[in-house]
């Protein structure tokens, strides 16, 4: 036999109790009581980068790889790579993007997903490259909110200890 879990009128008290003992009873304004339990939910997903793999392997070598449509009449150039062209459907080929670009847009996140809360505040930037038809989303470091503006020149930096994640590359103000 287990003692009946404690009853609370406030849901945040229920949540606190779940952290302590794993079970609580919530009583709503109509007096309805609901048993609430803690239910852990974790997975390690086996994530394949599949056809995007060369990009992430490239980051570990200090390279930013974009892709370019192989069909001469199309030739669309993508900053965020894809193995087939979004415009005409032809296969693309890899090429090295320049390591310098400009801010297409930017923001400073003061909150984020639970996994990234401890990193706040952090800057996100869409970076545009000369002659390239799409842009790349990346973190922007070594600068603060008040430094940032559309058109600001930036350059890439790479993690010397790559984790095979898009976070292996980030940008900083040029010069």
């Amino acid at each position: 036999m287990r003692a009946r879990p404690p009853t609370f009128d406030k849901f945040r008290d229920v949540q606190a109790e779940l952290e302590r003992t794993g079970a609580a009873i919530f009583r709503d304004t109509d007096g309805v009581e609901s048993l609430v339990i803690k239910f852990p939910y974790q997975i390690n997903y086996i994530h394949s980068y599949a056809e995007d793999s060369p990009f992430f392997l490239g980051l570990a070598e200090g390279k930013l790889k974009g892709s370019k449509c192989r069909r001469v009449k199309c030739g669309f150039v993508f900053a965020t790579p894809r193995s087939h062209c979004m415009v005409c459907g032809s296969p693309t080929e890899w090429f090295d993007l320049p390591l310098t670009g400009r801010l297409h847009s930017w923001t400073t996140c003061h909150f984020g997903s639970e996994a990234f809360l401890k990193e706040t505040p952090y800057n996100l930037a869409l970076v545009e490259f000369a002659g390239v038809g799409s842009v790349l989303l990346a973190r922007l470091k070594d600068c603060v909110e008040s430094d940032l503006y559309v058109g600001m020149p930036v350059e890439a930096r790479f993690d010397p200890n790559p984790k095979y994640s898009i976070t292996d590359v980030w940008f900083v103000p040029s010069g």
Partner: peptide, 20 residues
């Protein structure tokens, strides 16, 4: 692959859009 690991945050994405 390309968006979520950077901070995975929808308000951040909409902020990028409205700044532009």
């Amino acid at each position: 692959n390309f968006d979520f690991p950077l901070g995975g945050f929808y308000t951040g994405y909409y902020a990028l859009m409205v700044v532009r």
